[in-house]
Amino acid sequence: MTSSTAIPFADRVAVVTGAGSGIGRATAVALAEAGARVLGVGRRKEVLEETASAHPGIAVLPLDIVEEGAAEEVVATAVERWGRLDLLVNNAGSTAVMPLAETDRSVIGRLFELNVTAPSLLAHAALPHLRATSGSIVNVSSTYGHRPLPGGAHYAATKSALEQLTRSWALELAPDGVRVNAVAPGPTRTDVLVAAGLPDDTVQEMFAYERERIPVGRLGDPEDVADWIVRIADPRGTFVTGQVLTIDGGLELV
């Protein structure tokens, strides 16, 4: 019989937002492979079903997390299905290329709604269940949450806000046995830039520029980030909270 030490998330339940592709999909699969029962949440049903097909431990909920009542529905779905909730991974987010000269109020609002408000409401809805299981929250920030991003300041500001929420919640919830950490990926091969409306050739130019700057000489893969989300969320890591782990191939050093 395989021990729970070998399968750290056995009998535990996780919610992963933005699970239809990229880091979210890789995280859902990695958690399921580590023994968790995973509810993958996202807007696009078809790509969520592709995620679910990757492992029998993954169920999906097509839903826009910025909608009214969405946070409560996500948490209720997981708890009704499996009876508990141990981990919330706030991965869903969006970016925008928006220099100050082109500032658009609606773009700012959408960025903060998805990148800051929605994770806050999900954490709020999950909290009673996380307290009951001594669970944890992992927020997905960005290397640009703590370094400047010319032309993308408002995106960077949302990630900076998420990192500050991480630290503050960690202090607030430590007495309840709930840990809160974050990972901050650098440039990673996902479809987030295409989803932001950038042409493919522009995306490839940006990737090439970033690749040249990264000390290890390559862009990140979603699995690079997912692996560390699983590690920092490991229920055996009870002494790790309030941390922001940068996963960017050394980019923040240059």
Results as ranks from 00 to 15, higher is better:
residue 177 G to Q: 06
residue 179 R to C: 03
residue 108 I to H: 12
residue 133 T to W: 08
residue 205 E to Y: 00
residue 186 G to H: 09
residue 178 V to A: 01
residue 152 G to N: 02
residue 138 V to Q: 11
residue 140 V to I: 15
residue 107 V to T: 15
residue 197 G to Y: 04
residue 166 T to I: 09
residue 136 S to H: 03
residue 163 E to V: 06
residue 105 R to A: 15
residue 173 L to A: 04
residue 174 A to D: 09
residue 168 S to F: 03
residue 111 L to Y: 12
residue 195 A to C: 03
residue 125 A to E: 02
residue 135 G to I: 00
residue 164 Q to E: 12
residue 148 P to F: 07
residue 108 I to M: 12
residue 113 E to G: 04
residue 205 E to F: 00
residue 203 V to L: 08
residue 179 R to G: 07
residue 197 G to C: 06
residue 147 R to G: 03
residue 166 T to E: 12
residue 183 V to M: 13
residue 204 Q to D: 14
residue 153 A to M: 04
residue 128 P to N: 07
residue 193 L to W: 10
residue 101 A to N: 08
residue 164 Q to P: 02
residue 193 L to T: 10
residue 194 V to G: 00
residue 136 S to W: 06
residue 167 R to S: 10
residue 199 P to F: 00
residue 121 L to W: 06
residue 194 V to S: 02
residue 210 E to P: 00
residue 151 G to K: 00
residue 202 T to Y: 01
residue 132 A to H: 07
residue 130 L to Y: 00
residue 197 G to T: 08
residue 130 L to K: 00
residue 115 N to T: 06
residue 139 N to P: 10
residue 183 V to A: 11
residue 113 E to R: 14
residue 107 V to G: 04
residue 102 E to M: 06
residue 144 Y to K: 05
residue 115 N to M: 08
residue 159 K to I: 10
residue 170 A to W: 08
residue 138 V to H: 13
residue 154 H to I: 14
residue 191 D to T: 04
residue 118 A to L: 01
residue 111 L to N: 09
residue 156 A to W: 10
residue 199 P to T: 01
residue 124 H to R: 14
residue 112 F to C: 06
residue 103 T to R: 13
residue 118 A to R: 03
residue 106 S to N: 09
residue 145 G to H: 07
residue 143 T to K: 06
residue 133 T to S: 15
residue 210 E to W: 11
residue 100 L to P: 04
residue 106 S to L: 11
residue 149 L to Y: 14
residue 158 T to V: 11
residue 111 L to G: 10
residue 160 S to H: 14
residue 180 V to C: 14
residue 164 Q to R: 15
residue 162 L to F: 12
residue 182 A to V: 04
residue 109 G to V: 09
residue 162 L to Y: 11
residue 99 P to L: 09
residue 177 G to E: 09
residue 105 R to W: 10
residue 113 E to C: 02
residue 194 V to E: 08
residue 202 T to R: 04
residue 132 A to Y: 08
residue 164 Q to S: 14
residue 182 A to P: 02
residue 210 E to A: 15
residue 125 A to H: 01
residue 183 V to P: 14
residue 146 H to F: 13
residue 214 I to W: 12
residue 132 A to F: 11
residue 195 A to H: 13
residue 145 G to S: 06
residue 163 E to R: 09
residue 99 P to R: 05
residue 202 T to M: 01
residue 112 F to D: 06
residue 199 P to V: 01
residue 107 V to W: 07
residue 186 G to I: 10
residue 131 R to W: 03
residue 161 A to D: 13
residue 129 H to E: 12
residue 145 G to Y: 07
residue 184 A to V: 04
residue 112 F to P: 07
residue 168 S to C: 11
residue 148 P to M: 05
residue 179 R to Q: 10
residue 117 T to H: 15
residue 164 Q to D: 08
residue 137 I to H: 03
residue 106 S to H: 07
residue 162 L to H: 09
residue 115 N to R: 10
residue 143 T to I: 14
residue 122 L to N: 03
residue 193 L to K: 15
residue 155 Y to A: 10
residue 115 N to F: 12
residue 133 T to F: 05
residue 199 P to A: 01
residue 198 L to M: 02
residue 128 P to G: 08
residue 195 A to Y: 03
residue 175 P to Y: 01
